[in-house]
Amino acid sequence: MTIFYILFLFMLVAAIIAVETKKLLGSVICIGAIGFGVSLMFLFLRAPDIAITQIVVEILGLIILIRATIARDLTFISGDREFFGVVVSVVIVLVIFLAGVHIFETLPEFGTPIFAETTGSASQTYISEGFQKTGAANIVSAVILDFRAYDTLGETTILFTSILGATVLLRKKSRKLLGEVDA
């Protein structure tokens, strides 16, 4: 249990530095620290598949973010928005936090999953019958590739669409029309 608190302390400090530092590159590096902290946390929460995926995605995301921030000259923007607006936003964020903390009291204690107490839940079926039904030793891969395969199909569709949008946005010139003569 102590390791979770230590990792959370690390991630919260990194998050505050990422939000408050003036240099964008330092901010991006702090995002990397949070990401690898989350990955370690997944490992200690007994989710090795997620930890591996998180490391890969984290590295790619850092490359994308550094590509956006490095070699931009005007990366220092001083000051926040107008004072009144900042105060109102902070108050609203605080109210959301205080309201949300009360909701966590309705959840069971940390370490006692909900699916263990409800009979006939989907997770229990996956765990008890997943190996016989799919033949996959890893229950997580049995869920994403067999029980909920359409979910994964939708995921690839979203990924393809977003990369298509990024490619269209970053293209330097539009393609020439068919009848146009070369300059």
Binding site: L45, R46, A47, D49, I50, T53, Q54, V57, L60, G61, I64, L65, R67, A68, P113, F115, A122, S123, Y126, I127, G130, I139, V140, A142, V143, I144, R148, D151, T152, E155, I158, L159, T161, S162, I163, G165, A166, L169, L170
Partner: peptide, 29 residues
């Protein structure tokens, strides 16, 4: 065992977040 269902769904969410991050950053650039 721990719950496998949130792990499977979060796996999907992590990959989608990478795609959306690429789209947002290209808009910023």
């Amino acid at each position: 065992s721990v719950d496998p269902l949130p792990q499977a769904l979060v796996l999907t969410a992590i990959v989608i977040s990478l795609g959306s991050l690429a789209l947002i950053i290209s808009i910023c650039v």
